[in-house]
């Protein structure tokens, strides 16, 4: 499994994440993984959240989730939208 798919699964498992946003993506043979991009130096994720909790708290948790998968690289988090309540 590609690292981007592992990241996708880990992010979607978080209760505040509604879906990933397609403003950037990882392109794999046969499919694309929206909202995740990685290179040697940085990781970028774009998420759409359920409203309710303070976003900085959620982002901190997501960053920890990402680091658990990718190792210690800077993680750029884009909160692209909130799901309609």
């Amino acid at each position: 499994m590609d690292q981007s798919e592992l990241l996708e699964a880990a992010l979607l498992a978080h209760p505040s994440v509604a879906r990933l946003d397609g403003r950037f993506a990882s392109y794999l043979p046969g499919r694309r993984v929206d909202g995740v991009r990685t290179d040697d130096r940085r990781v970028g994720v774009a998420v759409v959240l359920h409203p309710g909790r303070p976003i900085p708290e959620v982002v901190d948790e997501l960053r920890a989730t990402v680091i658990a998968v990718t190792g210690n690289r800077p993680v750029d988090v884009v909160v692209a939208d909130l799901e309609d309540p």
Binding site: R42, R63, D76, V79, A80, D81, L82
Partner: peptide, 28 residues
Amino acid sequence: DTANVPARLADDTAQGKTTIASSVVQKV
């Protein structure tokens, strides 16, 4: 105490950057 101290957004340090889209602020 993250409840009272506004988090530093776009905290462009070793940890990475956080971006909040304007549509998020609009909805809230």
